[in-house]
Design a protein around this nucleic acid. Structure first.
Length: 398
DNA sequence: TAGCATGATTATGA
DNA sequence: TCATAATCATGCTA
């Protein structure tokens, strides 16, 4: 939870501290300006509006602090709502934001009211004083005008201070609630596992296609709202946005893997072994299936001669083998990929070495001399038509 | 509470 | 335009 009660109190104190000096300052100067205050209002009305004051007014209006109340909301609140994606979790935070904004609004209006009230009191008081003074000495209009000028400036600055403080308070609130980086949340363990499985089973080319990303997001139950990040445009297209989350994950993973292969090797082995178990079952099933349905299928069981119809996503294909959401008959490709996986596991355990040994799908050697990912599937092996060198999956991250 | 892990953003280069 | 590298900010854990 980002905002505990303690935090709320702390924020409120800051806001109060920001707001109150304006009034205190005003009270300090009260006696100095007392007897001429009555003239201020008229003078204020005549003067052209201060551009700075106008800016502050506009901002306060836009934020819903001044002006008519919009159900406790504001443009910023709306933005917060939009950014939240509408999950229950976020609606809590959204209402929290709205509550805080309402507090600021209340404080602002209370202070403004006090201010107005003080003005009225001064006016009455000054009227009395002037009446008394005019009996003892003549008061010239010029003198009054000069003093009015001084007081006018004083009043403007006080007003400006109040508005500025309120704006600052709103800005602090906004930044706390709307700063996406503060909204980072870890994916679930299961989601991370699914992503890792995909990553390590595609270590030769860990660039999932858009479809794969969407599917991964679905399988991981990743939603835009879960991430809480801001996608001004993408938010409208959930799939794109979730795809971005997957992209972020893969982007980070690729970099961190490359930076510290040694550290990730163990993890890679773990996932490879895990995949291999599934693969073994799949191979058996596929072989059996081929024998039953198409004993003369040319590609069945051969190595290195498959032409994958799509990106060659072993992981995804395995999902289909497991009766999951993926469709299409890619048994041959699956067999090949899974055989590769098995080979990798064998290689990792050091018990077997063949022609693929130096070109293991899971070997760090997949990184080329330039530090980029080398397509280990090229050219004669399990090359996907969409996965040649330099034609990596689009992994839109920005 | 420090240190590490990790999701997200930004700058940069191809 | 996209991937990478660097960085930031938060979450998690010992």
């Amino acid at each position: 939870m980002l905002h505990t009660n303690e935090n709320a109190d702390f924020e409120l104190k800051i806001i109060l501290r920001l707001l109150c000096p304006a009034l205190h300052c005003h009270i300090d100067g009260m006696f100095l300006i007392l007897y001429l205050v009555s003239c201020i209002r008229g003078a204020q009305e005549e003067d052209p509006p201060d551009p700075q004051l106008m800016r502050l007014d506009n901002m306060l209006l836009a934020e819903g602090v001044s002006g008519p109340e919009k159900g406790g909301g504001s443009a910023a609140a709306a933005a917060a709502a939009a950014a939240s994606g509408g999950s229950s979790d976020n609606s809590i935070e959204h209402s929290d934001y709205r509550a805080k904004l309402t507090q600021i609004r209340q404080i602002y209006h209370t202070e403004l009211e006090k201010y107005e009230q003080a003005c009225n009191e001064f006016t009455t008081h000054v009227m009395n004083l002037l009446r008394e003074q005019s009996r003892t000495r003549p008061i010239s209009p010029k003198e009054i005008e000069r003093m009015v000028g001084i007081i006018h400036r004083k009043f403007s600055s006080i007003q400006m201070q109040l508005k500025q403080s309120t704006c600052e308070a709103v800005m602090i609130l906004r930044s706390r609630f709307l700063d996406a980086r503060r909204k980072r949340r870890n994916f679930s363990k299961q989601a991370t596992e699914i992503l890792n499985e995909y990553f390590y089973s595609h270590l030769s080319n860990p660039y999932p296609s858009e479809e794969a990303k969407e599917e991964l997001a679905k399988k991981c139950s990743i939603t835009v709202s879960q991430s809480l990040i801001k996608f001004p445009k993408e938010r409208e297209k959930d799939a794109q946005a979730t795809g971005k989350l997957v992209s972020n994950w893969f982007g980070n993973k690729r970099i961190r893997y490359k930076k510290n292969i040694g550290k990730f090797q163990e993890e890679a082995n773990l996932y490879a072994a895990k995949t291999a178990v599934t693969a073994a079952h799949a191979v058996a099933a596929a072989v059996q299936n081929n024998q039953t349905n198409s004993p003369t299928t040319p590609n069945s069981g051969s190595s290195g001669s498959f032409n994958l119809p799509n990106s060659g996503d072993m992981f995804m294909n395995m999902q289909s083998l497991n009766g999951d959401s993926y469709q299409g008959s890619q048994v041959g490709a699956n067999v090949q990929s899974q055989v590769d996986t098995l080979r990798h596991v064998i290689n990792q355990t050091g018990g077997y070495s063949d022609g693929l040994g130096g070109n293991s799908l899971y070997s760090p050697h997949n990184l080329n001399a330039n530090g980029g990912w080398q397509d280990a599937t090229t050219p004669s092996s399990v090359t996907s038509p969409t996965e040649g060198p330099g034609s990596v999956h689009s992994d839109t991250s920005n």
